[in-house]
Nucleic acid binder design. Structure first.
Length: 592
DNA sequence: GCCGTTTTCGGCCCGACTGTTTTCAGTCG
């Protein structure tokens, strides 16, 4: 079965190979866009290809040819065009495209003129001096190539990505230095980090300043810079010792919004905006939106329409101001009304937290005080169940004593509801780690998979459905168990999961830790389309985990979540009524 | 290859920086 990721990889590979052959650039772009769209698509492309292939064409960026290739991949496991391209082009060439500063034109040049077909051959061609006679191969270019080869050899295979929770603190520390520089007025990070993608390839920073020289110096003289990649008047780029590339744009305050808009992207959103500007006889670039009437004299300055804020530019284009998290291809229509997305301020309860009773570092009281300080009306204490022995999971006897301690703490702390709960393991076969009588003694049950995370999609689906349909379970915790850039986790049939979760009113969790973000954004979109409830929880083990809420919120916003569908955003009455419904003996579907 | 109140052809976003060049091609975002 072809996964969305496999479809994306196939299209990206076709794009790379076509590019090396010198194919039409728009055709190459179309394949690249198809790859991006496949990666972000929330429905299962393989399933669509099997059952309703016509629906593939309804996806923006998927046309007749790419839809046929998805069907081909699903039914035959291969794409003939990709195999044909691979037969024509040496297998080592696409890797060369990942070298810094090396693009398709140069790869083709090296292949044609120096018979370079692999990284090893490139290296020996550099060392032997064979490149010197090739047009446009000066000393500087060859030296840069040598450096890029060394960098590629020392790095792991493929380009490195960084998780959101690793990248954003880094961005903020550099922004602080820029904000402190003489003349600074505004600073911001943009790019995929601002859009909230779960991993980012680089960081894009913007500073509005009256003293560009000071901003530039503050940036280039920062700590941990391994290499300066570019240093112009308005644009600088460095590579940090950790490997991540950081780009900086230096602008005036008057154009800050236009620059922020442009560098936030996505690429596809920018193209949409610029095309919309053209339709209205305007031009959009990173310096602003300009009137561009037909017949305007060449070279004469265009009249400015808007530039200082993103809002003013969207307004001048007759568009609602789109939140960064939705500026992606999966927003099918940017002219529609913007949903009132959930935000940090909406969250009023934390429903997944651990204490020293299992593997947390805080006491019940400390947890409760932390939750109060955030203005929450409810905190749930959900320590691990007995199967999680590595996390000091609680036996039934310990759990019962823990419940008493929670009741006492609630009285002592005051001013906040402290729920007695458990993060109960979903065993590999779908049974829960406590019996029903024990679970019934709790106020809230979060059921999560922790082991057997490599089981088949079919087994995972059966397992998770059993937990979702269990009348005593409120929340399915980190449903796939994936670790970003670490492990794939379970791959259940999300359609079946969402259908059951909506029917049973069992909430699906977005686990806020930046290494999890599970559900992921595309799963949130799918879940909402089925009418599911969503929980956004920090899975608190220590106080700083509470700060991960921002990443869960960003993921929720990328999924289009509105407060009504998030149990953590409900009033205390609404939340406790929902929790109580599953404790009141109301029959819930278990076998459908 | 995709797309469509200029639709089945003919467009397709726009600019900065680098290096190799004397006016521009390639890469990148």
């Amino acid at each position: 079965m072809a996964t969305n990721q496999e479809c994306a990889l196939a299209f990206a590979a076709i794009a790379d190979l076509l590019e090396i052959t010198g194919a039409n650039a728009f055709k190459v772009n179309a394949y690249r866009k198809a790859a991006r769209v496949c990666e972000d698509e929330s429905s299962d492309l393989g399933k669509l290809a099997r059952e309703t292939p016509k629906q593939l064409r309804e996806i923006e960026g998927i046309g007749e040819s790419t839809a046929a290739k998805i069907v081909e991949l699903e039914t035959t496991g291969r794409v003939a065009e990709l195999e044909s391209l691979r037969a024509q082009i040496p297998a080592g060439l696409p890797l060369l495209l990942t070298l810094a500063g090396l693009g398709p034109k140069t790869v083709k040049l090296l292949w044609d003129e120096a018979k370079v077909t692999s990284l090893a051959e490139l290296k020996s061609a550099i060392d032997s001096g064979a490149l010197a006679s090739i047009p446009r191969m000066g000393g500087k270019t060859i030296a840069n190539l040598r450096e890029a080869v060394v960098a590629r050899e020392s790095a792991a295979a493929g380009p490195t990505r960084y998780r959101l929770g690793e990248a954003i603190p880094l961005a903020q520390s550099i922004l602080k230095r820029l904000a402190d520089a003489n003349g600074s007025i505004r600073v911001a990070f943009a790019g995929s980090a601002r859009r909230g993608r779960e991993t980012v390839g680089d960081l894009d920073l913007i500073v509005a300043t009256t003293d560009p020289t000071a901003a530039r110096a503050a940036f280039l003289n920062g700590p941990n810079i391994a290499k300066v990649l570019a240093q112009g008047d308005t644009k600088c780029a460095v590579q940090l010792a950790s490997g991540i590339q950081v780009d900086l744009r230096i602008v005036t305050e008057a154009v800050f919004g236009a620059t922020l808009l442009y560098f936030t992207g996505s690429k596809d959103h920018n193209i949409f905006l610029r095309e919309r500007a053209i339709e209205r006889e305007m031009r959009l670039n990173e310096y602003g939106l300009f009137r561009n009437p037909r017949g305007w004299p060449e070279g004469k300055e265009l009249p400015l329409v808007a530039a200082t804020t993103e809002e003013s530019i969207y307004a001048a284009l007759d568009l609602p101001c789109w939140p960064p998290e939705l500026r992606e291809t999966y927003t099918s229509d940017f002219t529609q009304a913007v949903p009132r997305l959930i935000s940090l301020a909406d969250i009023r309860a934390e429903l997944h937290a651990h204490t020293t009773a299992s593997d947390g570092v805080m006491s019940i009281r400390e947890l409760a005080e932390l939750a109060k300080s955030r203005g929450f009306h409810t905190i749930a204490v959900t320590d691990h169940s007995k199967a999680s022995a590595q996390a000091n999971g609680l036996s039934v006897e310990r759990l019962l004593r823990h419940i008493e301690a929670i009741r006492e703490a609630e009285v002592q702390v005051g001013g906040i509801r402290i729920l007695a709960g458990s993060e109960v393991d979903i065993l590999a076969d779908g049974r829960l780690d406590y019996d029903d009588a024990t679970l019934a003694a709790l106020d809230i049950v979060v059921a999560s998979p922790h082991t057997a995370l490599k089981q088949s999609p079919e087994a995972a689906t059966t397992r998770l459905l059993a937990a979702i349909r269990h009348p005593l379970v409120h929340i399915l915790g980190h449903p796939t168990g994936r670790i970003i850039l670490g492990r794939e986790g379970l791959a259940p049939d999300m359609q079946a999961i969402c259908t059951a979760a909506a029917q049973c009113q069992t909430a699906l969790e977005i686990n806020c830790h930046w290494s999890r973000l599970d559900l992921r954004d595309s799963h949130v979109r799918a879940a909402l389309s089925f009418g599911c409830l969503i929980a956004i929880d920090c899975d608190i083990h220590s106080a700083e985990d509470a700060d991960n809420l921002q990443y869960g919120i960003t993921t929720a916003r990328r999924g289009g979540l509105i407060p009504d569908h998030c149990v953590n955003a409900w009033t205390a009455d609404a939340l406790h009524a929902w929790l109580g419904r599953k404790r009141s003996g109301v029959r819930l579907p278990r076998d459908t």
